[in-house]
């Protein structure tokens, strides 16, 4: 067994803190935008006219059938050719949001499909206006039904941020790789970042569970 030396690793602890912050910002922003895309997309795909639901379906299929890495390359390397130049970090947020959005659409749509038609008809016969039907009778119960699957996707998203170093965005894994090249302490560095990711993801799971309890207190 190789002699593990964590001294040179902890000497760079400020770099790790920067990395953790970048990872959390990337994850939080892309989860927010991705969920917005998912919510609007799912409603559009389920209830919108064909001219709306067909492109949303195409978007979902294209994103879900291509690797995240290729989507990152596309946003960072190919969009500048048509004049859209995003910095590494913004390109990462855009690609991650688009990626999560497609999965979120499918997850939320499954929830919407699970709402019995009778429940919507009951709401109509009670005289609820369409907005209130969509919000209270469809979307909230749908979200409650799929909330565990949605948060599982959020967890994958947090871990997905670890590959955005490929387009030179500086997050935890990219910073760790820089340190590996500087200190050659690859073993120690990867052990440390594995532990950091574990703590982040565990905390996120607890946070999502807590949010779920707050949002969906009542029984449907």
């Amino acid at each position: 067994m190789q002699n593990l030396q964590f001294g040179p690793v902890f000497a760079h602890s400020d770099a790790f803190i920067d990395g953790v912050i970048s990872t959390l910002v990337l994850a939080a922003l892309s989860i927010f935008f991705g969920t917005m895309i998912g919510l609007l997309g799912a409603i559009g795909r389920s209830y919108g006219p064909r001219i709306l639901s067909a492109p949303i379906g195409a978007y979902v299929e294209i994103i879900r059938n291509t690797p995240l890495l290729i989507q990152l390359y596309f946003v960072f390397f190919t969009l500048p050719l048509v004049g859209i130049k995003l910095s590494s970090n913004w390109a990462a947020i855009v690609a991650l949001s688009i990626h999560l959005g497609a999965y979120a659409i499918e997850i939320i749509r499954a929830g919407i499909d699970s709402i019995p038609q009778g429940q919507i008809e009951a709401a109509k016969s009670l005289g609820l206006r369409p907005y209130r039907i969509v919000r209270h009778v469809i979307v909230v119960p749908a979200l409650k039904a799929v909330y565990p699957s949605l948060t599982a996707q959020f967890i994958l998203q947090i871990m997905g941020t670890s590959i955005v170093g490929a387009i030179a965005a500086e997050e935890l894994t990219a910073i760790a790789n820089n340190l590996v090249m500087q200190t050659f302490r690859s073993f120690e560095i990867y052990i440390v970042i594995a532990m950091i990711y574990f703590v982040i993801v565990q905390s996120a799971s607890l946070l999502f569970a807590g949010i779920g309890r707050l949002l969906f207190q009542w029984k449907a």
Binding site: Y73, F76, F77, T78, P80, L81, S88, G165, A166, I167, A168, E170, A174, N177, N178
Partner: peptide, 15 residues
């Protein structure tokens, strides 16, 4: 900006 391989670096330069 640090890239993982030379081809990504060249692509970033060209784009």
């Amino acid at each position: 900006l640090r890239f993982d391989d030379y081809s990504s670096l060249l692509q970033a330069m060209v784009s």
